[in-house]
Nucleic acid binder design. Structure first.
Length: 330
DNA sequence: ATGTCTTTTCCTGTTT
DNA sequence: CAAACAGGAAAAGACA
């Protein structure tokens, strides 16, 4: 089961990595351009100086490559302060760049703009930045190498008995897999009372109750609360599972690639993955599908009648068509 | 600090 | 019967 945990985490990290960086303005970003692995970074403890007692810095917890201009400015100001550097020596008009640009600056360029502080900035940036290509290839390699084990782990969390007749039973039925694996990954003993539909509590309030697991989650991961990265929409998440076969792992398939018709093969597994991405281990296909149904009105999805677990991308979605995908991937 | 937007949660009823 | 589908309602959480 160590394998189940490890691989699931890798998978979820890969996904967080992909999405942590996504700019909402871009319809989609290829993983190669949007690695990130912020979770791993945070879990391992980043080398940043802590800002005890104060607000968390806007840039902390995010990969420098993906900082906005404002975050870059924040970080520079922070470095100026930290190194007791004379800010008047810096032409802040030349700091109008985003994280990607900043990371692209050579040491000489940084020295040019920031003087001696350039060396500090350069070193700090290097510390904050892991190697993108290495990161990605490592993850892909692992996914590929352990593809079978991963699949088995999803289908058979305890690795014993009934190895379900390998994947994609196109039955249209849902699956309860990952639930067990999930309870191992995200133990709930901290909240023994939280149980769906507990009859003891009679009529509960309507609407969305406060999520109980969040603090527990954060404690579990040994990190402070971090805002979810922006630009992560459910339909984009679904789309990316479909267009990156290396992420798909038999979770979904195209029914009609040209028309954007697709089907959930492992609905609960996809829901769990979505839940992992949103740090919400209570996600289910039922809830995910409610969100999907909201997309009909906005024409991000089109209705497909009479076909269970089948949806179709609508005219307000993008990034899934063959030509778009080719562009995205190159 | 207020409003908007996208979910998330729950629920009741219907369909497959 | 179980699993999906349909949507209404209300609230959470992120973001502007």
């Amino acid at each position: 089961m160590a394998a189940a945990c490890q691989i699931s985490n890798v998978f979820s990290n890969y996904f967080s990595a992909m999405y942590s960086a996504e700019d909402p303005a871009l319809t989609s970003a290829p993983p190669a351009a949007a690695f990130g692995a912020e979770d791993a970074e945070l879990t391992l403890g980043s080398p940043q100086v802590s800002l005890e007692g104060t607000e968390k810095a806007s840039w902390s917890g995010e990969e420098p490559q993906f900082w906005s201009k404002a975050q870059v400015l924040d970080w520079i100001s922070y470095q100026v302060e930290k190194h007791k550097y004379d800010a008047s020596a810096i032409d802040f008009s030349r700091c109008n760049m985003d994280g990607a640009t900043l990371c692209g600056c050579a040491l000489e360029e940084l020295r040019l703009v920031f003087g001696p502080l350039g060396d500090q900035l350069h070193a700090q940036l290097r510390d904050l930045t892991s190697s993108p290509s290495d990161e990605l290839s490592w993850i892909i390699e692992l996914l590929e190498k352990d593809g079978i084990a991963f699949q088995e782990a999803l289908e058979n969390p305890f690795g014993t008995g009934t190895p379900q007749s390998s994947h994609s039973s196109d039955s249209g039925g849902s699956d309860v897999d990952l639930d067990l694996a999930d309870s191992k990954l995200f133990p709930r003993d901290g909240f023994p009372n939280y149980k769906k539909g507990d009859p003891k509590h009679g009529k509960r309030k309507r609407g969305r109750p406060r999520k109980l697991s969040k603090e527990y989650w954060e404690r579990l991961e040994g990190k402070k609360s971090k805002h979810a990265p922006r630009g992560t929409h459910l339909w984009e998440f679904i789309r990316d599972i479909l267009i990156y076969p290396e992420l798909n792992q038999g979770l979904m398939k195209w029914e009609n690639r040209h028309e954007g018709v697709f089907k959930f093969l492992r609905s609960e597994a996809v829901a769990q993955l979505w839940g992992q991405k949103k740090k919400n281990n209570n996600m289910t296909y039922e809830k995910l599908s409610r969100a999907m149904r909201y997309y009909y009105k906005r024409e991000i999805l089109e209705r497909v009648d009479g076909r269970r677990l089948v949806y179709k991308f609508g005219k307000n979605s993008s990034g899934w068509k063959e030509d778009e995908v080719v562009q995205t991937r190159n």
